[in-house]
Amino acid sequence: MFRKIDQTRTADAAIQQIEELILSGVLRPGDRLPAERDLSGELDVSRPVLREALKTLEQRGLLSSRQGGGTFVADVIGPIFSEAVVALIGRHPSATSDYLEFRKDIEAVAAGHAAERASQTDHKILTEIIGQMDSAHAAGDHQREAELDVGLHQAIGEAAHNVILLHSLRSCYRLLTNGVFFNRQRLDHHPTAHTVVLAQHKEIVAHIIAGDAQAASEASRQHIAFVSQALIEAEEAQARKLVADQRHQQRQNSVPAPTKPRSVKASSS
């Protein structure tokens, strides 16, 4: 990941290299940097120079250090909305459709750029994630599928090789991961959603690998459109089930207890 600094082995040169790794998304929030001795060796700078660089990066809010725990990449993404707006959205689920509409547009752009710019390594990453999604789907592990879903879309954003798009998408997916708009597990109530979504992910990746930007963008749009409709159908199905369960419970509660049959006295002959 790190490369030796060829010329002036200054703190500024070390700062620039680490900043570039954070900006390009190679170093992610929460990633731990190598130990000071190892990192100074990889950069080929003295430890005092490295300490100066790390201190500057920490002052800039890009790194954070933990006593006895090492140095980590700070939460450079941050929330896309303030806590107040997030809470407001949480109280008004109607914002979900706007969120999905936004994702449909921005992810279509990302998929198109990925088809045009992705490297062989990007292709390998996308293919590996699809393989993991296949395994999770076969095992019926919907929680793992949900995690990989976010991971795949992030990888597509990375393959687009646009740092503004990359960090915008990461912030956008944080809301998805936190369940601010919806929880992907709600799709469990849809009879075919998991199978269709997997097939759609495979189609998007196939178009990216083929270098077909238009097809990749359209497949991405169709994917989000399906998710949006599937969520509506899943909610409707869940609502119907809830009403049916309530009716069934009420019927059980209202059934009168069986009465004992009257005894018939025998008549004398």
Rank of each mutant, 00 (worst) to 15 (best):
A138G: 03
A139P: 01
A139E: 03
A139S: 02
A139N: 08
A139D: 03
D141R: 05
D141P: 05
H142Q: 04
H142W: 09
H142F: 07
H142I: 10
H142N: 00
Q143P: 01
Q143K: 14
R144M: 13
E145G: 09
A146P: 07
A146W: 10
E147N: 06
E147T: 02
L148R: 01
L148A: 02
L148N: 01
D149Y: 05
D149R: 01
D149A: 02
D149S: 06
D149E: 07
D149F: 07
V150P: 00
V150T: 08
V150S: 04
G151M: 13
G151H: 05
L152M: 08
L152V: 05
L152P: 01
H153W: 11
H153I: 10
H153D: 08
Q154A: 13
Q154I: 10
Q154P: 12
Q154G: 12
A155I: 11
A155V: 09
I156N: 07
G157Q: 03
E158G: 13
E158C: 08
E158V: 08
A159S: 15
A159D: 07
A159M: 13
A159Y: 06
A160R: 13
A160F: 12
H161E: 05
N162S: 12
V163S: 15
I164C: 13
I164F: 15
I164R: 14
L165I: 10
L165N: 11
L165T: 11
L166R: 08
H167P: 04
